[in-house]
């Protein structure tokens, strides 16, 4: 199929330096719809989403439960494909990609930070950070050096051999952030990153995200907490699958 071929060539040509210029649109959604068919009736979860996010932005996505937040998050994270409309991430038309290419895109362009950390219990800190690099085909030496560097950066340089079970919640989330940065992704995609943390660790994590934004990373946070959303420069309010309004700060 022409579509999948096109997707493949685009991915092979990915040049990260090109898209890192501030102000370049890296995420473009046009008339994007997502529907589920649990029975005979079509269940529209996302309706005609029009969204553009440029490089270096700090965006919060808010909305009550059932507003389509999670679905939009999955869509942005390339875990799911739209039913209708287009979604372009760094020049790749995600709606046209097959499963393997989606995996490749996720691994190369998305850095996930989950509410429940999602670290792998039998691996230590370094090995957890190495996972995305492993699937991207980094060499052993390269991957280890970068993982150690990232662990140091999030303040866990002295705990690289610890298992997730030996870390506090805040430390776990730092490991997750280090892991999200491993492939130098286009977008850091955080889903309620402080939801399982006490306020102190939560503030700590938000501080790291702020720092990443200052360093030029594109950060998207999905939350229902106004205080967290207050860190972002743009807040997108979702309601019943629509973008109800967008709020710009500063």
């Amino acid at each position: 199929m022409a579509g999948s071929d096109k997707g493949k060539t685009v991915i092979q040509q990915v040049d990260k330096n090109l898209v890192l210029n501030s102000g370049t649109p890296i995420l473009v959604m046009q008339q994007l719809c997502k529907s589920y068919f649990p029975g005979a009736v079509e269940l529209k979860v996302l309706r005609d989403i029009e969204l553009t996010i440029t490089s270096g932005e700090y965006v919060a996505i808010m909305g009550p439960s059932g507003s389509g937040k999670s679905t939009l998050l999955n869509m942005i994270g390339c875990l799911d494909r739209p039913t209708r409309g287009t979604y372009k991430l760094g020049g790749n038309n995600v709606s046209m990609l097959d499963d393997d290419q989606l995996s490749l895109i996720r691994g190369a362009h998305i850095g996930f930070v989950f509410q429940s950390f999602n670290l792998i219990d039998q691996l230590n800190v370094i090995e957890n950070i190495e996972i995305p690099m492993y699937y991207q085909g980094f060499s052993e030496h390269e991957s280890f050096a970068r993982a150690a560097e990232l662990a140091e950066m999030v303040g866990l340089g002295d705990r690289v051999k610890h298992r997730p079970s030996e870390l506090s919640g805040g430390q776990k989330q730092r490991v997750a952030i280090a892991r999200a940065l491993a492939n130098d992704p286009l977008i850091i995609l955080a889903d309620e990153p402080t939801g399982n943390l006490d306020s102190e660790s939560g503030a700590d994590i938000l501080g790291i995200l702020d720092r990443l934004h200052r360093e030029g990373k594109t950060v998207i946070v999905v939350t229902h907490d106004d205080n967290i959303a207050a860190h972002a420069h743009r807040i997108i309010h979702l309601f019943d699958g629509w973008i109800k309004r967008q709020e710009y700060r500063k």
Partner: peptide, 16 residues
């Protein structure tokens, strides 16, 4: 199952 989900999200293909 969860580990599989994490790995898939972080770029693992079905083949991996």
């Amino acid at each position: 199952t969860r580990e599989i989900g994490i790995r898939r999200a972080l770029g693992a293909k079905k083949r991996d």
